Simulated scan of single mutants.
Amino acid sequence: MRRIAILAEGLFGWHYGKTATGVIRYSQDTTVAVIDSTQAGQDVAHALQRPIGEGIPIVQDITEALTYQPDTLLIGIAPRGGALPASWRWQILNAIEHGLNIVSGLHVFLGDDEELRAAAQKHNVSIWDVRRAPEKTRVAEFVPHREGSHTILLVGSDCSSGKMSTALDLNVEAQRRGHRSAFVATGQTGMMIANNGLPVDSLINDFAAGLMEEQVLQFTNSNDWVFVEGQGALNHPGYSPVTLSLLHGSVPDALIFCHKAGQTTIEGYPQCPLPTLNRLIEINEEAVSWLKPERKCRVVGISLITNHLDEQAAREAITQVEQETGLPVTDGFRFGIGPLLDALENHFK
């Protein structure tokens, strides 16, 4: 059990700070403070305007965070490109000098930084670069999953559409109902929470599906329900390859689709409009069918992000998507994840 201070300078929030909010919400480790000078003096729940992280202070810098006696500094953002903001270096060095281990999900590996590595060695602390890929290679072999196991992959219309949180919530609900289930992490935040998984977006393309297949087979051998965290989106102009590697590496039996209510374009690509939800569902189902034409894998429910809407507008958005797709829809955070697990249980009867 770690005592974590999360560094999220200037970016703590639901979107750009999704690593921070994910760890606070789901990790069994204790978050003692969040570092963001632009919101210092609040607590996490106030900053997020949700009942998450009540009593966890947002502080000015690492110096103030140290008064809460953390043993780990976790980098709480995953910026596009994955680089380390230069203005953060002094805070990481300060943490190392005070004996804190470092956890980072950046694409740039802090353990390869000569100054940071030397400081870590001097102070006998570890640097865990979560996105560092395993050295092994494996091409997918299309090995059947254990009979009786159910693999569910989370897909979506864009990045940051709720795939990780929905998978985690479904796993908790499945276990509550008595199912032998597991969550398979495929990204840096999920790995920080679960202490397992693969950083799929850092794997060599030829081996991503194969390494994912190996991972899923390990989980299906010992669990009846396996929820695989999704990444990217099949329609994303930059990150579609990672989604396809998950679709073909996990060879799911069912899909849950994730979407932000009202979104019409890919974030950061205003020239890239989203197809209709029914078309997005169709292309994901079709990509699985290329490998499993005899046993159709389909989307059985939709997880909708509505945290930018008031409650009435959120319920109206859910009703509209239900009518558009004919599928059960919920915002698991606001209204509970139960309808989606109900749909999965009915699908696998």
Rank of each mutant, 00 (worst) to 15 (best):
D310M: 10
A86S: 13
A40Q: 13
F219N: 08
N195M: 06
I52A: 09
N307S: 04
E285P: 00
M192N: 04
T325I: 08
P199C: 02
K136P: 03
S202P: 05
I35W: 06
T276K: 12
R176Q: 15
L274W: 08
H236Y: 02
S126H: 14
G105Y: 01
T151F: 01
G197E: 07
H107Y: 07
T189F: 02
L247F: 12
F142T: 07
A33D: 06
I152Y: 04
I204A: 15
E267R: 15
I283E: 10
N284K: 01
F183H: 13
E214H: 11
Y16P: 00
T330H: 11
T306V: 00
W225Q: 12
I283P: 08
W88F: 14
L48W: 03
N196P: 00
V288H: 01
F257Q: 11
I62G: 09
N278D: 09
I337T: 07
T189C: 03
D331E: 06
C159E: 05
H150T: 10
A78P: 07
V59S: 05
L48V: 06
L168W: 11
I24D: 01
P85M: 06
V251Q: 15
A8M: 10
V251M: 15
T67S: 13
V172P: 00
H248G: 00
L244T: 10
L247G: 04
E115D: 13
G41I: 11
V139M: 05
Q215G: 01
S202L: 06
I75K: 02
F333A: 14
S157L: 09
N101W: 08
A78R: 04
V34L: 04
S87Q: 14
Q121R: 14
N307R: 15
Q323A: 12
V329G: 03
E214Q: 15
V44M: 10
G262S: 07
F333T: 10
G82H: 02
I24L: 03
G238A: 14
A208G: 12
T186N: 06
L280Q: 15
W290A: 08
W90D: 14
I6A: 07
I96G: 07
H98R: 14
D129R: 11
H308G: 00
T306Q: 06
I62Q: 13
V130D: 02
M192S: 11
I337S: 05
A254R: 11
T243K: 12
A119Y: 13
A194I: 04
G17F: 08
V125N: 09
G332W: 00
D112F: 13
T31K: 00
V44E: 02
I127C: 08
L74C: 12
L274E: 06
Q69E: 15
A20Q: 02
T38C: 02
T264Y: 00
Q323G: 01
Q28K: 11
P237R: 09
W290E: 09
M191S: 02
P339E: 08
L327S: 04
N205E: 15
A185M: 06
S87K: 12
I4S: 04
G187C: 00
G332V: 04
F142W: 10
A133V: 07
I266N: 03
H179R: 13
L93R: 13
D169T: 00
N205W: 08
N171F: 00
A140R: 11
S202Y: 00
T19A: 12
P134W: 03
G336N: 05
H150K: 14
E114D: 14
E285L: 05
L341R: 05
T186G: 05
P275I: 04
A167K: 01
